[in-house]
Design a protein around this nucleic acid. Structure first.
Lengths: 205, 205
DNA sequence: TGAGACATGTAATCGGTTACATGATTCC
DNA sequence: GGAATCATGTAACCGATTACATGTCTCA
């Protein structure tokens, strides 16, 4: 109930601040969150559903004016369910069909539950991705016997992507594990932002 | 109607040979096609729907034995709809939410319609991917002002993935454009690494 | 005064997931 | 004789898409 990626994305948006359906609509259509939704026909019903389940509560703002807004905020139960959802393990199935949902969990877990939970997700993700990558390699080998070149290329693409995933995960794990505040300049947060030259974890071609 | 990725995958499977629902079930659960389905609850209804729409026709095999099989094959209308679906342009939206469907179209287009259609899809894919990648870069820059590190990492992942996509597309376009490739692979592993090092001679145009 | 953004929704439809149901056949 | 697998489905539920409906406010 209510743990579609879209619902999770909404919970995450409402975590920082209360918002109206229209606010969400704008946020989702302007940011990468757009991958989880798009239309009022998805967001408004989702909010209603979540309200029915007691996860959010809508309050009317500017009630007396001509332009009232229905603003939703998380309930205690909603916060509970939200954190609960973030703690879910990363499954193979999710890796195959819902990578974006995993990414979303990673981000929200980092922001809401802290570095360790984010790391946990990353490590599980990494493990599943590598196992799936190996399977794709096996399939590629098998495919070369019988299949078309096109299928071969497609499998190769899958492998490339999973390699990119794995590399990314390793990079970020390392970065998160490094002692949090280098504080070499006495400017804690600002120090990190300075890297314009990506380096991207080291090598890349 | 009936142009979900799953339906397309089924059409593609039936294109080469007639199959029963159970055959499809096995094929889908054993190959990368599994990403489009999984369960009898998806495949059987899909077959029924497609039959209702006149795209496939089921015939009972071994009618007099104790184990009859319902075998489906494409109708003329089904073949038409299939090819029609393969000719659809690659949209931005698809790149964001249904890359696997694009890959599927690429493979099937190559097998069914020939190299030129596969190339067309690849080129459209490449174009959309690069445009989306640029947008992600913009978002990343904007995000660094305000967002959390986690969001930043997630965006970086998106960018990595789209880079992998773009590189793959370029590689395969080049390979398909080379005149009737001999494709002799004495040593696959070594040859494959070559797609990173420019040992393959043919760089892209 | 009309276009376009603000703001909130509903209804129809479609299709996928989960879980269940049924019975035959094959293998140990 | 019991388990696994072959083989075919159905029903309930959930949630996303599409398209529509309604009205306000702002600005040129």
């Amino acid at each position: 109930m209510s743990d579609s990626p879209l619902a999770l994305a909404i919970l995450g948006s409402l975590w920082r601040q209360a918002r109206s359906g229209y606010d969400l609509l704008r946020v989702f259509s302007e940011t990468a969150l757009g991958g989880f939704s798009s239309s009022p026909g998805a967001i408004y019903p989702a909010l209603k559903r979540m309200q029915r389940h007691g996860l959010v509560k809508g309050e009317v703002e500017n009630r007396d004016t001509l332009r009232p807004r229905q603003v939703y905020r998380l309930t205690a139960a909603g916060i509970e369910a939200f954190k609960q959802a973030l703690r879910q393990p990363v499954t193979r199935d999710e890796v195959m069909r819902q990578e974006d949902a995993i990414l979303l969990r990673f981000v929200l877990a980092g922001e809401v539950l802290g570095r360790d939970e984010a790391l946990r997700i990353l490590e599980e993700f990494s493990r599943e991705v590598e196992s799936y990558g190996r399977e794709l390699n096996t399939q590629l080998a098998a495919h070369k016997e019988t299949g078309s070149v096109y299928g071969e290329y497609a499998l190769q693409q899958g492998i490339d992507v999973y390699r990119a995933h794995a590399r990314w995960a390793r990079t970020i794990i390392a970065r998160l594990k490094r002692p949090a505040a280098p504080r070499r300049t006495g400017r804690p947060a600002a120090a990190r932002r300075g890297h314009k030259t990506p380096g991207n974890g080291g090598r890349r071609s």
